[in-house]
């Protein structure tokens, strides 16, 4: 399935609200970047719409905020967006984000199991999908109606372990597993399409491994929502989300340096101005 095949029926999904939330999350991450520099901003921003969609469009929550569904950020280095979402939902207290990466806090640059809202320790690449598969399988074999949403980086698709999980998920027909590939085409040493051209096409590889697959704009929340909602549902489902590293702040977009850097005062002010425009 390609973008052209997706029937966009995003009934019940408030795209304007998603746009405003995502701008707020990006602003919050930038705010924290002014005290702690090593945030992996670029990768957090490429995942922003995906993570927001999981928590605010796909996962079911009861009145107390509990969900039968599970979210797992396999690309642990992008966890700032998960922290921002968990803070907005009240799962993580504001003071914990203020103490990010300090000796008094519980939040580090990679997520740790045991932190409220964090379902698994990730950061070492290529671990999250196998754990997600185990979680989804546990739900299914116990008769629990619970979906598992897992976000991997495109670099994680270079890990053999990820392909072991992809192969096994399809062999087991684990259809309550939804994978988002944050396909921003960047990794530490350059653009993946240049350094590893055989990496592409991604969607076709996943399809060949037995997954129902869609390739779609990873910043189009409504389109991704519709794609997931309209899936056939008899196989594990993969969204190859075509994203832009550093999305949302013009000078960060597609610039590898924002994997590591934090904005200076002037850059910070400009970023806030740009996000304010989106929030209007």
């Amino acid at each position: 399935m390609t973008t052209a095949d997706v029937v966009v029926d995003a009934t019940g999904f408030d795209l304007d609200a998603a746009r405003r939330r995502c701008a707020q999350f990006r602003r919050r991450i930038l705010e924290i970047s002014q005290t702690v520099p090593a945030l992996h901003i670029g990768g957090a921003f490429s995942s922003t719409e995906i993570v927001d969609l999981c928590f605010h469009g796909l996962m079911r929550h009861d009145d107390t905020g509990e969900s039968p569904d599970t979210f797992l950020m396999s690309k642990g280095h992008g966890c700032m967006i998960m922290y921002a979402v968990l803070e907005a939902r009240g799962t993580l207290p504001r003071e914990e984000l203020e103490r990010f990466c300090t000796s008094e806090g519980i939040l580090g640059i990679h997520p740790d199991y045991g932190v409220p809202g964090v379902e698994a320790s990730t950061g070492a690449l290529g671990h999250g999908l196998s754990m997600s598969l185990g979680m989804a399988y546990a739900n299914r074999s116990s008769g629990v109606d619970g979906n598992v949403y897992c976000v991997v980086s495109d670099g994680e698709l270079q890990e053999g372990s990820t392909w072991e999980a992809i192969l096994m998920a399809a062999s087991l027909d684990v259809s309550n597993l939804v994978l988002f590939v944050d396909n921003n085409d960047f990794q530490s040493l350059g653009r993946t399409s240049i350094t590893h051209p055989a990496f592409y096409p991604v969607g076709e590889k996943l399809s060949a491994f037995g997954w129902e697959t869609v390739e779609i704009d990873g910043h189009d929340s409504a389109g991704m929502f519709a794609a997931v909602q309209n899936r056939k549902g008899d196989k594990p489902f993969a969204v190859v989300a075509k994203t832009i590293k550093g999305k949302g702040v013009s000078y960060m977009e597609d610039q590898a340096i924002w994997h590591y850097r934090a904005p200076n005062e002037e850059e910070y002010a400009q970023a806030l101005r740009e996000l304010a425009e989106v929030e209007k």
Binding site: Y113, E119, A120, G126, H127, L129, S130, M131, S132, L133, G134, M135, A136, Y137, A138, N139, S142, G160, S161, E164, A165, L167, M168, S171
Partner: peptide, 17 residues
Amino acid sequence: GVAEQVMTGMAAGLALK
């Protein structure tokens, strides 16, 4: 199958549930 990494990762996922 011959896939020990997913064997171990799946076990963790099962245990997490």
